[in-house]
Design a protein around this nucleic acid. Structure first.
Length: 278
DNA sequence: CATTTCACCTGGTGGC
DNA sequence: TGCCACCAGGTGAAAT
């Protein structure tokens, strides 16, 4: 489901609701796919721990966990890392609420609330990282919201793949997915099939600013709800109403009325305006 | 190494 | 109503 703006919205919502709470009990489903760390080890590492805070890194939601001994050091000693895949949801509810189909994790908290991870397609992943060795989780790629112009341009130098495919590569930039790749390329006036290494410095700078602008705007609107995306409270976002090209195949461009085209790049549906983008 | 393709899953939609 | 093809916010392994 979610890209940077949706993950940011969810992480913020979860953080305000469960920061300072304590995990009393952890339950996991029997499907093996969602677990990057074995469920038994996650139960062991989660139960009894304090949640110090929740934040986003790339498309990952990171829950910082306190010491197992319960000592109030404020120092994170472990991380519970949630990747939502295509259809994952992370919800804060009460234990009494009806349990949705495809619920793969339930963490009951000391306050009486409950965190649930629901994921029909099971492309999402849950991981527990012990930080005793000091290995803080960080995605491989750069964050598009604060990358410098020089660093952004350097990412694409000499690359022969389509700029759209490069934007989706999480080892270059982290957090950009199919919606915001298409929307930022439209805003920058760049065709998605252009080879990344052939873009001029001016075009790349235009793209960096467009990407940042689009992502920040989407965060303000609570993300895009294309089918079933909801935030930590089950509320939909509103950025889908502002999409210029994504899933608008055949509809008139908002700028020039030319029908939006859909092509395949890197196996992903790609939407652009043949008039506005060069 | 860089790049492309495909498998992994369920569910919704639209055509016949 | 049923059946089928196709599409969907992602990513990592295998192939080229």
């Amino acid at each position: 489901m979610p890209e940077l703006p949706e993950v940011e919205t969810i992480a913020r919502g979860v953080d305000t609701r469960i920061r300072g709470d304590r995990i009393v009990e952890a339950w996991f489903s029997n499907h093996p796919q969602p677990f990057k760390t074995a469920p038994e080890r996650q139960v062991e590492g989660l139960e009894g721990r304090m949640i110090l805070g929740v934040h986003r890194t790339g498309k990952h939601i990171v829950c910082e966990l306190g010491d197992l001994s319960g000592a109030k050091t404020g120092q994170s000693s472990a991380q519970w890392i949630v990747h939502l895949g295509m259809t994952g949801r992370l919800l804060v509810t009460t234990p009494a609420g009806p349990v949705a189909n495809h619920t793969h994790a339930r963490l009951t908290l000391a306050s009486g609330r409950e965190i649930r991870f629901v994921d029909p397609r099971r492309f999402g992943r849950l991981e527990l990282r012990d930080l005793e060795q000091g290995a803080v989780f960080r995605g491989a790629g750069k964050e598009p919201l604060n990358i410098a112009a020089d660093d952004f341009a350097a990412l694409f130098r000499g690359r022969k793949l389509a700029i759209k495919a490069a934007l989706l590569n999480q080892t270059l930039l982290t957090g950009v997915g199919n919606i915001y790749a298409d929307e930022s390329l439209f805003r920058a006036g760049i065709r998605p099939r252009r080879r990344a290494g052939r873009l001029t410095r001016a075009e790349l700078e235009c793209l960096r600013v467009a990407l940042k602008t689009v992502l920040e705007h989407a965060i303000r609107l609570g993300g895009s709800s294309v089918s079933d995306y909801v935030d930590a409270d089950g509320v939909r976002g509103f950025f889908q109403l502002e999409h210029c090209v994504y899933l608008r195949t055949g509809q008139p461009c908002r700028t020039c009325n030319t029908p939006i085209r859909r092509i395949l790049i890197a196996g992903r549906g790609t939407h652009y305006c043949p008039q506005c983008q060069h």
